[in-house]
Design a protein around this nucleic acid. Sequence first.
DNA 1: TTGTAAGCGTTATCAC
DNA 2: GTGATAACGCTTACAA
Lengths: 334, 334
Amino acid sequence: MKKITINDVAKTAQVSKTTVSHYLNERYKNMSPDTRERISLAINDLNYNPNVIAKSLKNKKTMTIGIIVANILHSFSTQVIRAIEDYAHGENYHVIVCNADNDPVKEKDYIQMLLAKQVDGLVIIPTSDNDELFSKLVADDYPVVFVDRFIEGISIPSFLLDNENAIQTAFNHLLDKGYEEIGFVSQPIEDISARIERQNAYMDLCFRHKMEPFTTSGGLALIHQSLDEAIKKDALPKSLIVANDLALFEVLKLVKKHGLNIPEDLSLISIDDIEFAEFFNPGITVVAQPSFSIGEQAAQTLFEIINKKEYEIKIHRFKPELIERDSVIEYESK
Amino acid sequence: MKKITINDVAKTAQVSKTTVSHYLNERYKNMSPDTRERISLAINDLNYNPNVIAKSLKNKKTMTIGIIVANILHSFSTQVIRAIEDYAHGENYHVIVCNADNDPVKEKDYIQMLLAKQVDGLVIIPTSDNDELFSKLVADDYPVVFVDRFIEGISIPSFLLDNENAIQTAFNHLLDKGYEEIGFVSQPIEDISARIERQNAYMDLCFRHKMEPFTTSGGLALIHQSLDEAIKKDALPKSLIVANDLALFEVLKLVKKHGLNIPEDLSLISIDDIEFAEFFNPGITVVAQPSFSIGEQAAQTLFEIINKKEYEIKIHRFKPELIERDSVIEYESK
DNA sequence: TTGTAAGCGTTATCAC
DNA sequence: GTGATAACGCTTACAA
């Protein structure tokens, strides 16, 4: 498979490669229709495809941005990625998506690989152990934005849910329905700002309402285990706030295992809307984040940075929305 | 952000860039420990990151492959991607994933973009309208493998489910349970080999068992509509084979809308295992494909092609597996 | 209107 | 052991 280059095109079209380059970049202004035609023909004949690697090297622009998500299995990540891709497409950019699996080491590797690939900017759902690397990025004026989380002390624009508001919304909804026991199920907090904020908001509310907090701790497997124990000890609250979709999966598996009925035995409200919440039996009441807007605005700001426009280094908060379905019932009617 | 190049390193280490290049590529054999040390220091001091774009241009190897999936929302795609990534990682390769949305035009664009980016190979879940482009790829000896589908007359190794066997498995399971009405729900057939095979297998079986076929046609929205009508006319079979996960979602939405009970009112068996099938109420009986193996072997063959090893241009079929849960009940007991 | 030539950051060949 | 130098495929002053 001999690669066709701009030289080959130039030769068959009987022009210099400069002219071909002009043609490729649509600078037709002062080009005789004749040459233009010849070049066009040559390109088709040879089935020429420009080498963007060479172009990037010269231009110092790759027209691609990198996205590093903490865990691609979250519906939130998928939606954010989709929004960013759409935006990038509009700017004639491509996107490389990497999944760091919430592992700072993987995250670091990916960042370095993306830098080596000379991507023009980065959208990151950051883990909490690469402060030094992030500082270096800002010191180098490298275009980066954060999504879903922020890192204390790192001046990078961040786009995320108003977590406090989200928990409040969920909490108040359960309170309104008459619950006096509200538990909170989360993946391990691990210094991740979104999780800290959700947990803190929950603890605060418990305190303010003089309620005993109930929380699980540990990874997905441990959620299972700790709920399992609570059920056996009959210590499970009558209502639960679930911090995200993956945690919800664990809760539902457990509910099934123990033959619990939702909402009769247990009322459930979850952060993050997911397609199946709608047709699950019963429909899951949910506090949804505007993932698409979050991704879109993150992308928009990233491109402002890339194009050296004005932008604000601040934390952008997005309001959640309560979607009522059938997983929460009046406490009285239990 | 001034970019540090190999020249800068060479200068501060007081050696030529050739030597630095040797160092970078771990050809230390004839290098004095002293220079080696100086280079190492310089690299750290300057925080140097090699430019893989330049390297690729020179080497004519980008160490990345492209994956084009027809629809990233299928759990099958996600799993295949994951398997390919894992494999590629082992070969020190990176992966760029593109979602063609089942649109031949998008597919073509992506292929061209990936070629322009000089990826070393391609894994494609092909749509059915780019035969010419695919032929050109094989004519150019460009490394490509297909997954999930194959294209008649294009000599590209293809890795996919034994669809006939999958439908047979589902059909027989329902037959065993005593059903005499078995419907088939699929997305539009559209010349897509996997869908054709599944539908044909279904039709064959109906014929062999002298049963009246019941099929839906049209996109996700139309599935909804056509089932809706069937229910209203009370023409819905007592059991349904659902061709994939996305179609299953539609069926479940509809089931919920009409307040049907599974499996009492309707028995369901679906192709593709998905996490939620396990904890849905009831658990969904499923014919699973070995997505991970499919992706892995596709990747393996792709790298054989890239590395110019021997390989077979043929269709590799994978056996499905029945996973019984609770969405199918004995017909008698209804 | 088109061409010449330098340069982007690497690697490879061949000297020394 | 180390270093010039050309080359990869493209863009872009500048020249003609």
